[in-house]
């Protein structure tokens, strides 16, 4: 079989593609230029509006981020506070327990009975004085 020359190959290809191009030209049903122009206008306006609103969106995003950050810091502060409170309550409980444990020894010590007697006498004196004062009236 004879091998086609370059010129023959070019002729075959050119003819085939030219026929295909004319077929594609007949098949083509592009939208009207008015519609394409109108759609382009609408899209350009929409993009311009989005571009103009971008700074507002950025400010919104920043404010939301700042609010979220503030909320998070408050939550963190509250959590730290609760932790501190629980530690304080634990310490209070431990010191109370230690004091209760040491109470018998304290009661048997020298200064507690004296102090208790002094308080009892004071209460008695105050009661008598109050009676004397209000009885006269």
């Amino acid at each position: 079989m004879k091998t086609p020359t370059d010129a023959e190959i070019e002729a075959i290809v050119a003819e085939a593609i030219a026929a295909e191009a004319s077929c594609a030209h007949a098949e083509a049903q592009p939208p009207s230029s008015a519609i394409v122009w109108w759609r382009a206008q609408m899209r350009a306006r929409q993009e311009a509006a989005q571009f103009a609103e971008k700074p507002i969106t950025i400010v919104h995003a920043l404010s939301i981020a700042a609010g979220a950050g503030l909320m998070l810091s408050l939550v963190g502060y509250a959590v730290a506070g609760v932790k501190g409170l629980s530690a304080w309550a634990t310490a209070l409980w431990q010191s109370t327990a230690a004091a209760m444990t040491a109470l018998p020894a304290t009661l048997s010590g020298g200064w507690f009975p004296m102090m208790a007697t002094a308080m009892l006498i004071s209460a008695l004196v105050v009661s008598i004085a109050a009676y004397v004062i209000f009885a006269d009236e």
Partner: peptide, 9 residues
């Protein structure tokens, strides 16, 4: 537009 449509298709 017609030629471009042909190219694209």
């Amino acid at each position: 537009s017609r030629a471009l449509w042909g190219y694209l298709s």
